[in-house]
Design a protein around this nucleic acid. Structure first.
Length: 428
DNA sequence: TCTGGGGTCCTAGGACCC
DNA sequence: TCTGGGGTCCTAGGACCC
């Protein structure tokens, strides 16, 4: 079973502000370089779509209401969504905040009928969460996902047409879809792969079934070839994976105005590092690999990464590594995006060594050789940092922070009542 | 019209070990 | 004197998903 919430972010915004109901609403970046993350069906009638630049969306629909997005709210709704699924079965796998795959095989002996379970689920999601959703039932992930897509409302000639809500894929329907769907409809086939297949004269799923896997592999690689050949036969052996654990954590930011020079980048990287470090600590994990990604104004990107022998979860340590990595990037253009990612996780308790205070003076040429830091000083620092984490968890991210995260403009403390600014002469 | 931010997975080359 | 094959790990880049 695949369940997909309709226009999720936009729908949550409408629930929280009923005056938006019936209006074209989009969630996404409203400023210069933003894109649409989610659009209400009213907005879709104008041709507004996810991933569309907001300026384009505004052109198509001048009265579009663009909201910045409140991910805490979406996460809260997502948890409630998962709670409802969990009542049916614990065997489910979320994909992002608004979709899940559920494995219904173990429900057979309980004599739960999939169609009835799907209908009941839809009713509960509608009544308890006040959200709409589509449900697909199929023999594997491939068909379940295609089915949930078919179950949804859609825009035809600018008019909204209701979906069936639940779609079950019969053997006949399987055959029909394999016959009539374009390759682009398949999971894993995006613009690049579709273009390659197009060149081979393979525009339809039925075409894939005729070409041998080896030929396919020489054009799209062995893994993709195997997947596509299987899909073309209606086969998909992907399991529903319960309790997937993240393999990387990162923070990407596209700047309103592009950055110039390594100093501006290093400044920005401090903020990124703090966000990544906080996420790491909240999950009691440390990362051995730190990656920076730089995207230039011409949209080319470069990445640099370094793997250490031990893990880090400290903003200063991560920022120091990021800074060294950024130093090896040739800045031939202005930079529109900077990302800092952490991967190769270890449990915090399994970590051999912690790298924290004082690392910023360490030359990275020593590659993983931590500067000797007095144990006392390190323990004191970690206690301080953990206390800061606690304050933030209780009172919000803006409650307390370091000056370096805020940049050269000085220390600013945001409160719910107002904003107090202190000049750069203040010593934090 | 001009391209987000959170992720996953794959590929290819190189270093290194046995 | 020149060179194998199996394997792991790391780095960089790219495609894709929501």
């Amino acid at each position: 079973m695949h369940i997909d919430l309709d226009a999720f972010f936009a729908s949550v915004e409408v629930l929280d502000d009923p005056s938006l109901r019936g209006k074209p609403v989009a969630v996404g970046g409203s400023q210069g370089r933003g894109v649409v993350a989610s659009a209400s069906y009213e907005a879709r009638r104008y041709g507004v779509r996810s991933a569309m630049p907001t300026v384009v969306a505004m052109r198509r629909c001048p009265e579009l209401i663009v909201l910045p997005g409140r991910f805490d709210r979406y996460e809260a709704y997502s948890r409630r969504f998962h709670d409802v699924i969990r009542d049916l079965t614990p065997e489910f796998e979320p994909l992002g905040l608004d979709e899940v795959f559920a494995d219904l095989r173990s429900l057979r002996r309980l004599r739960v009928r999939p169609i009835e379970a799907a209908e009941a689920l839809r009713t509960r999601i509608n009544e308890e969460l006040r959200l709409q959703c589509g449900v697909g039932l199929g023999r594997n992930k491939l068909f379940a996902k295609l089915a949930s897509k078919r179950s949804k409302p859609r825009v035809v000639d600018g008019e909204l047409v209701d979906g069936a809500g639940v779609v079950w894929v019969s053997a006949q329907l399987e055959a029909q879809w394999l016959e009539e769907l374009p390759v682009r409809a398949l999971w894993g086939v995006g613009p690049a792969t579709a273009a390659k297949l197009e060149k081979l004269g393979l525009a339809w799923v039925r075409d894939l079934a005729k070409v041998d896997e080896g030929t396919l592999a020489s054009h799209v690689g062995p893994s993709m070839a195997a997947t596509l050949s299987a899909f073309a036969r209606g086969e998909d052996n992907r399991e529903v994976v319960v309790d997937r654990v993240a393999k990387s954590i990162g923070h990407d930011q596209t700047f309103l105005r592009s950055l110039h020079g390594v100093e501006e980048l290093v400044d920005a990287a401090r903020g990124h590092s703090a966000i990544v470090a906080r996420a790491l600590r909240s999950q009691d994990r440390v990362a051995r690999t730190i990656t920076v990604i730089v995207r230039f104004d011409d949209f080319t990107s470069v990445s640099r990464s370094q793997t250490l022998a031990f893990g880090v979860d400290d903003e200063f340590a991560i920022a120091a590594i990021a800074e060294a990595l950024l130093g090896s990037v040739e800045l031939h253009h202005a930079v529109r995006l900077l990302a800092v990612h952490a991967s190769s996780f270890l449990e915090r308790s399994a970590n051999q060594m912690q790298l924290t205070f004082g690392f910023e003076q360490t030359s990275l040429s020593t590659r993983g050789q931590a500067q000797q830091v007095s144990r006392e000083r390190q323990v004191g620092y970690e206690a301080l940092r953990d206390a800061v984490d606690e304050v933030r968890n209780k009172f919000g991210q803006a409650a307390v922070g370091t000056a370096s995260e805020l940049g050269a403009a000085g220390v600013q403390i945001a409160t719910q009542r107002g904003r107090h600014a202190f000049g750069p002469e203040v010593t934090p």
